[in-house]
Design a protein around this nucleic acid. Structure first.
Lengths: 162, 162
DNA sequence: CGTATTTACCTGTCCGAACAGGGAATCCTG
DNA sequence: CAGGATTCCCTGTTCGGACAGGTAAATACG
């Protein structure tokens, strides 16, 4: 991956500075998270699933889909890869034979501290130089953007399915 | 894709509220951009390449890689798909036979207005309710985050390659 | 001049993300 | 109880993104 040179002028950003900035920040953030997570043997996205599993205990796949806000196909394959990596175990539910329960293996618990440190470090690198109030402002702004985007996608989905 | 329910409490966000918010905002933003762009027959990422081509004229692929800050393999395949879709033409350079020049086809020019409207709309949906100064603050904060992340990844790359 | 390095591009592979579609189990309703 | 709808999961496909490796062309250097 080529590094976007630090002072690169926004080339096509004239049409939407915020959108373009979100795009760039997200890409850098994802890249940095990927670099940090690789030390732990995880790929970006897998750590969210594991973190939820560690916090909330064994989960049904459908619950993971809801909590992660992800696609069920993505969860199916991510769980499969995590199982192959030994971080996760899948058990069929006896009461409802449609559901499969996903459990974090004991081997994965060793990862937990590492992943939490990585997230803490990622947060510090991201918010470097922002004071406590600066972080609050950032969280508030991002929440606002998230609210707007959620609203917009929901409106589009509702209109499409009507 | 399941909709992340609007008021969903951040489940694993305790370890890094800003990082988690970036993740969520980016995902929603990407999803919304994808929904809007599909009307134009483009996938997210392709529109940036086309916009740069429209603005800056025929480009070498290496230039596109630099400007988009993307991977050369990604650009190769994205250009191939855009060529197959008829939005782009590839010509071999006579002076330097290594380079291929990518040109926006006349057919693609019809897309330009549409894509620009889509980006304008995306920006409005994203920044809805933020005043002019709110948008400025958003741009400033995002620039700060981008700077931090660029710094961090650059530092990591430098250390790794030393 | 000939070799080494750099540049530009392509290919293969792996991953997450999204959509479409399908099969199995369960639930609901008449 | 039977049939239809729903839930849950899986598979296939397509796409962007990233990494590794490889080829051809141009340039730099001894």
């Amino acid at each position: 991956m080529e590094q976007p040179e630090p002072g690169s002028a926004p080339p096509a950003a004239r049409g939407g500075p915020i959108s373009h900035a979100i795009f760039r920040v997200a890409r850098l953030h994802r890249m940095l998270a990927g670099q940090l997570l690789r030390q732990a043997g995880l790929h970006p996205g897998q750590e969210l699933l594991m973190m939820h599993l560690w916090e909330a205990g064994p989960q049904r796949q459908a619950e993971l889909v809801t909590v992660l806000g992800s696609d069920s196909a993505t969860v199916t394959r991510t769980v499969a890869r995590l199982e192959r990596a030994g971080f996760v175990r899948r058990t069929s539910c006896a009461e409802d034979r449609r559901v499969t329960i996903v459990t974090a293996t004991p081997a994965s618990v060793a990862l937990r501290r590492e992943v939490e440190q990585i997230w803490h470090r990622l947060e510090d690198l991201t918010a470097d130089g922002l004071g406590a109030d600066g972080r609050d402002a950032a969280v508030e702004l991002l929440a606002r953007l998230e609210h707007n985007l959620a609203e917009a996608t929901a409106a589009r989905c509702a209109r499409r399915s009507s």
